[in-house]
Amino acid sequence: MTTDADAEASAEDGQDQYADLGATTRDAMEIAETSMEIVRQFVPDETLADRVRQKSVHSMGDIEFQHLLRFTGENEDEPVRAGARAVLDEATIVTDITMAKAGVTSRGHDCDRRKAIGSGAELAAETGMTRTAAAMLELDREGAFEDAIVTIGNAPTAALALADCIEQGTRPAVVVATPVGFVKAEESRKRIREVCAERGVPAITNVGKRGGSGLAAALTNELIHVASDAREGELSIEAGAD
Rank of each mutant, 00 (worst) to 15 (best):
A91M: 07
I117F: 11
G61N: 10
A86P: 07
M36Q: 14
E146Q: 11
D62L: 09
T34P: 00
T105A: 04
A124S: 15
R114T: 14
F145T: 01
V80F: 11
H109Q: 09
A134R: 07
M36N: 11
K101Y: 00
T157G: 10
E37W: 01
P44L: 03
G118E: 04
T105R: 09
R114K: 08
V150D: 00
D45Y: 06
L139V: 04
T130V: 05
E126T: 13
R40C: 03
D77E: 11
V104Q: 06
T132Y: 03
A124C: 10
V57E: 05
R113Y: 00
A82N: 06
V150T: 10
T92P: 03
K115G: 11
R113F: 00
R131S: 10
A28T: 07
P172W: 03
V104H: 06
A163P: 04
G120W: 02
T170I: 09
I38Y: 12
L88H: 07
K101G: 01
L48M: 13
T151M: 01
P172C: 09
L139D: 01
A159R: 02
R171G: 01
P156G: 01
A49S: 15
A49L: 07
R70L: 02
M60C: 13
K101L: 13
I149F: 02
H67F: 07
G143K: 04
R131Y: 08
E122V: 13
L160W: 02
T157M: 11
Q168S: 13
I117V: 15
T92M: 12
N154V: 03
E33W: 06
E122G: 08
F65I: 00
V43E: 03
E90S: 15
T170W: 00
G73E: 09
D96C: 06
A134P: 09
H67W: 09
Q54G: 15
G120N: 04
N75R: 11
A32S: 12
A155I: 04
E167K: 08
T127D: 12
L48G: 08
S106V: 12
L123F: 06
L88F: 11
F71E: 09
E74P: 00
D89W: 13
D140A: 08
E74R: 14
A116D: 02
D45S: 15
E122T: 15
L88E: 13
P44N: 03
R53G: 05
D77C: 10
E33I: 01
A84P: 07
T132Q: 02
R85M: 11
G118R: 08
L137H: 15
A84W: 06
E122P: 00
T132G: 03
K101V: 01
L139P: 06
R85G: 05
I97Q: 05
G118K: 07
A173D: 01
E46Q: 14
Q168Y: 09
S119P: 00
A125K: 15
V87I: 15
A158S: 13
E78N: 02
M129N: 06
G143A: 06
S35K: 14
E167V: 00
A163C: 09
D112G: 03
T151P: 00
V43C: 08
R53A: 08
D50H: 14
G153Q: 02
E146F: 00
C165H: 01
